[in-house]
Simulated assay, not measured.
Amino acid sequence: MKKLSIIIIIGIIFLFFISLSEDKLSLENNTSSEYITVFKKGINGIKAGMDKTFSEEDIEGFKRGFSNFIYKVKNIITDEELKRIKQKTADLFREINNSVWNNFIDSDYEKALVKRIIDGDTIVVILNGVEEKIRLIGVNTPESVGKYKSNPQPYGKEASNFTKRSLLGRIVYFEKDVGDKDKYGRLLRYVWLTDPSKGNLNEDMFNIILIKEGYGSVMTIQPNVKYQKTFVNLERQARENKKGLWQLK
């Protein structure tokens, strides 16, 4: 019962801060809006259950009290503070969403929500409620961030944008190889668009998609060599067909 109460409170607070500034601010991307829509549906379901439990008089009293609360808060929270609160709430909801997926989707593989794209071969995810950087194994895309931000390597922006279009806001699956992290502390993973035990290697592993579409080249670093031969063969095909960056060679 305590857990249910906490969930209801979080839901109400979340919707309050969204509705408070609908006419002033919007969340930064479409992914957040999708989460809000789903969450609102859940809250509406809770409301329907409350309607059956509480009398109309109880509900009206709650509405009046809540309206007074909104009025008071509107006069003490600045737009900048509200923006920060909304962002933190959106991040919290992503973590809750990720936890739900991890608990209710039956898979032997790690699953995470893609939160941000750094460049073509590096992403940021929420994994088990923790933000982690993921470096895709076996593929290297042209650089487009850091010292290359103002002058990206050829096809760097295209690779980064492709990864963003493909992965941002998605639930992805991770397959490990022998080595777990690189020297920068990033997790080394094969990134799958579906459960690896059910997916197609050439169609559902994103590392391979980057190589065969010409957004990156093969980069083999021991001991992570499980798919090395497949990667090399697909790179050769992409090069022969002048796919992506290979049309510039």
Rank of each mutant, 00 (worst) to 15 (best):
R170C: 08
D58S: 04
R186V: 12
P154T: 06
V100L: 15
N44I: 10
T122N: 06
I12H: 07
F66M: 02
R236N: 15
K41F: 06
D180P: 00
R170V: 01
R236K: 15
S150E: 13
D108N: 12
E80W: 06
E95K: 12
G216D: 02
T220L: 15
G49Q: 15
I8T: 04
V38R: 10
V114L: 03
G244S: 07
T53F: 11
D195M: 03
K72I: 15
A159F: 05
N200V: 09
S55K: 06
Q247K: 15
F174K: 03
I6D: 12
N207M: 09
I6L: 13
D204P: 02
I76N: 03
N102T: 14
L188K: 04
T163M: 09
F54W: 01
R239M: 13
E60D: 14
Q247Y: 11
F14K: 00
T89D: 14
I6K: 13
E34D: 12
K164F: 02
E60K: 14
Y227W: 04
V218R: 01
T230Q: 07
E132S: 05
N44D: 14
V172N: 06
E213G: 00
T31G: 02
G120H: 07
N202S: 09
F17M: 05
V191H: 01
T89A: 15
E158T: 10
N30P: 05
E175C: 03
F16V: 10
T163P: 06
I9W: 10
I7T: 01
R116A: 07
L193E: 05
P154K: 05
V191S: 06
E158W: 09
L234V: 09
V139S: 04
K198I: 03
T230W: 00
I12E: 13
N200W: 01
E213A: 01
N224M: 02
N29E: 11
I59D: 01
K74W: 10
S19N: 15
L20H: 11
M219N: 01
F231G: 02
L201W: 04
L234K: 08
L248I: 14
M1Q: 11
Y215D: 02
